[in-house]
């Protein structure tokens, strides 16, 4: 938030200009500074909490936290490319491909007589390997050949689903070693399960990378104004390539954790994340024009989407209606962001 802090008028200033509208001044200040997301979160918590007290129970909130980890991870992955004025629609089908590849390789290893730890390690390596290849292809096509990110990753999404289906012969891959699920989904370390630890580590790593390294600054710069970045001696194409690699690798972690949680690998697993991850970023104020947004907010964005889903499930809102609500909220978020940018921009 430091970037915008001084360009926002203080609430005192606002209040002074419109005496008697002190509360409104504060609201506007919060809106300009943090965007629409805190308001949406508040509305959802209050509305659902009032309608159904169970929604606010510790148990349910914990449940939401657990459910949301995968989306949070994929959304953070997505943020790396969106900040760079890119887009990766293939993250959803990559999750599926990682579950399938890892599962297939684990099974083959066990069938070939390898011991369980080796099989698990080989399987995970295979999952990571395909992710690197996918990130590489996306990155090279977009940054070095100048392909359009939307179309490139849309094509990748389609192709990857096909690869997953081919690898798995169209049936879900089972027979995952129980130990894999134990280590990466059930066991607690310092009271935390692996997915939550992954979220914390990826957030901390991502935050450090974006705000404390030269690479991070260059990533924002490339997303904000590529020509200026290039003239400032920044290797913009490499930066862009690395952002796609990062995105795929982080997505891979989500795939591995997903496989540990469900014990099945299938092409369709995670397919919803393609759009949900973009939605989480946009709601969190990550600009699709690149260069603007913070990774911490992306976590809130993903949490919000999961909360909304959970709340509507508890209230037994019809699933068709749920989709309508989600669509409307996305539009509201986009509209709110535009108003915010205009209010900020009018001051120039």
């Amino acid at each position: 938030m430091t970037q915008t802090s001084t360009s926002v008028p203080s609430p005192a200033e606002n209040a002074a200009r419109a005496p008697g509208h002190r509360a409104l001044g504060w609201l506007k200040f919060a809106f300009l500074r943090f965007g629409i997301l805190p308001f949406l979160l508040l509305v959802v918590l209050v509305a659902f909490g009032a309608a159904e007290p169970r929604f606010l129970s510790g148990e349910n909130l914990l449940n939401v936290a657990r459910q949301s980890t995968f989306l949070i991870i994929v959304a953070m992955a997505q943020a790396f490319v969106i900040l760079n004025e890119g887009l990766d629609l293939s993250v959803g089908s990559l999750v599926g491909l990682v579950t399938v590849t890892t599962g297939v390789v684990m099974n083959a290893q066990i069938f070939g007589g390898a011991d369980i730890p080796t099989a698990i390690a080989m399987g995970m390596a295979a999952g990571l390997g395909v992710s690197l290849i996918v990130g590489m292809i996306n990155g090279v096509c977009i940054s070095f050949f100048g392909f359009n990110p939307f179309i490139t990753t849309l094509a990748m999404m389609t192709a990857l689903t096909g690869v997953s289906l081919t690898l798995s012969n169209g049936v879900p891959v089972g027979g995952i070693p129980f130990e894999f699920g134990e280590v990466f989904s059930i066991n607690r370390y310092l009271g935390l399960q692996a997915p939550l630890i992954a979220v914390i580590v990826i957030f901390a790593g991502g935050y450090f990378l974006l705000h404390h390294t030269v690479f991070g600054r260059h990533l924002y710069a490339t997303g904000s104004n590529e020509r200026a970045a290039k003239l400032s001696g920044i290797p913009t194409r490499s930066i862009r390539l690395v952002s796609y690699l990062l995105c795929s690798v982080v997505t891979c972690f989500a795939g591995l954790l997903m496989l540990a949680r469900t014990g099945t690998g299938a092409a369709g697993i995670g397919s919803q994340y393609a759009l949900e991850s973009v939605a989480a970023c946009v709601i969190a104020g990550v600009s699709l024009m690149g260069g603007v947004g913070r990774i911490g907010n992306v976590i809130l964005g993903a949490l919000f989407l999961t909360l909304l889903n959970n709340g509507m499930n508890i209230l037994q809102v019809q699933s068709y209606l749920q989709k309508i609500v989600l669509g409307v909220i996305l539009l509201v978020a986009l509209g709110g962001d535009r108003i915010r940018l205009r209010l900020l921009g009018e001051r120039s």
């Binding site: 430091t2 030269v214 710069a221 104004n225 020509r227 001696g233 920044i234 600009s287």
Partner: peptide, 21 residues
């Protein structure tokens, strides 16, 4: 506008950009 500034980024980031390494 097009080849100099990163609009939407703060002054400090804009000044430091070329010299970060």
């Amino acid at each position: 506008r097009h080849e100099g500034l990163m609009m939407g980024r703060n002054t400090s980031d804009n000044i430091a950009l070329s010299a970060l390494p």
